[in-house]
């Protein structure tokens, strides 16, 4: 075991897979010689060569399309989209091609492409470096959608994603790259070294796709969340002195419905929290599933906490961010009903 932040853990995952499988190639803007704008691929081109860690032109549609072609020809590409905000030029290739090759060819062709992309705000990124577009991808049939919240899961989930024969869009909450974040920007930053999930196995391991994790067991209320909001939820529940059961989805597609419903049936109360905008956000799907499966066990209407339905504003980042205060409000609302 070693201390790793999330960037180091992701780097380690790609290092492990480049070493294990000669079919694995990395590609993306600035990822080669330079090692990526967030340093996720630092040193990998030097170690594995320019032919396996490719710098690419600035064309997300071209990156995804060529990754598909490489995948069809037996490689296992891991493409970095520098910011999730830049993924839109690649959406036709993701939604109409990558996601459907297996289906439309009756299983004869597929491309095992993993698309890594940093998402979320809280880094003064403004409206083009802060978005959380995961629900655009969860709505597409045929791709898996992953978002880890800590270094240990990030490495294990990325290895599992690379090994998966289905395409995966892998969102990395960049505010968590360097440490867990409870939503309070005024507190000193906390590094991953002081967190148990910053202890990462150095070699190969996987965290299976499609399995949520109970971050904290409890009986008062279930908080269903993922990515940046996991630590915000933990802090908000602790501040209220609630015995909350907190579930980190880790994988959005396929969704671990059993884990969610088992918990909500036990607690009878549910709050859903994500950083992405609320309207048609992934929380709407979770809410619908919980309502359909757990209606007769619910003690109170389900609450959603999310980003406001506006672009991410540069100057009002912390008014936008769904921090502890908004999670606390939602928790109080579901606890008030008796």
């Amino acid at each position: 075991m070693a201390h790793m932040n999330m960037i180091q853990a992701l780097n380690s995952a790609m290092d492990v897979m480049l070493a294990r499988d000669p079919a694995v190639v990395l590609m993306g803007e600035d990822i080669g010689y330079f090692g990526g704008v967030f340093r996720a691929t630092e040193g990998l081109q030097r170690k594995y060569g320019e032919h396996r860690v490719l710098d690419t032109p600035i064309a997300e549609g071209g990156i995804v399309a060529t990754a598909i072609g490489m995948g069809v020809n037996g490689l296992r590409p891991v493409a970095e989209i520098q910011f999730a905000d830049y993924i839109y030029p690649g959406i036709d290739q993701i939604a109409s091609e990558l996601a459907r090759l297996r289906f439309r060819s009756a299983g004869d062709f597929f491309a095992p492409v993993t698309i890594r992309t940093p998402c979320g705000g809280g880094i003064r990124g403004g409206q083009t470096h802060s978005q959380s577009p995961e629900s655009i991808f969860t709505h597409i049939c045929g791709i898996k959608v992953v978002m880890p919240s800590n270094p240990y899961d990030a490495k294990g989930l990325l290895i599992a994603s690379i090994e998966d024969d289905d395409p995966v869009v892998f969102f990395e909450p960049k505010r968590l790259y360097n440490g867990p974040f409870d939503g309070d920007p005024n507190k000193p930053a906390v590094p991953w070294t002081s967190h148990p999930k910053g202890q990462v196995t150095e070699g190969y391991y996987t965290v299976p796709l499609g399995k949520a994790e109970i971050v904290r067991a409890g009986s008062d209320v279930t908080i269903i969340t993922y990515g940046t909001m996991v630590f915000v939820a933990v802090a908000a529940a602790a501040a209220l002195g609630l015995d909350a059961e907190i579930i980190d989805l880790r994988t959005l597609v396929p969704l671990d419905v059993d884990a969610l419903c088992t918990s909500v049936k036990k607690t009878g109360r549910c709050v859903i929290a994500h950083e992405a905008t609320r309207f048609s956000g992934f929380g709407a799907e979770i809410l619908a599933v919980v309502q359909e499966e757990c209606f007769w066990d619910l003690e109170a209407p389900i609450q959603r906490v999310a980003g406001w339905d506006t672009p991410y504003p540069h100057a009002f980042e912390w008014e936008y961010f769904p921090g502890q205060a908004r999670v606390s409000e939602a928790l109080k609302t579901v606890m008030e009903v008796t």
Partner: peptide, 16 residues
């Protein structure tokens, strides 16, 4: 859509 995919396929052939 197939045009850049063909390029990717060819890139893989060259890599291999």
């Amino acid at each position: 859509t197939q045009f850049p995919q063909a390029v990717g396929w060819a890139m893989a052939a060259a890599i291999k």
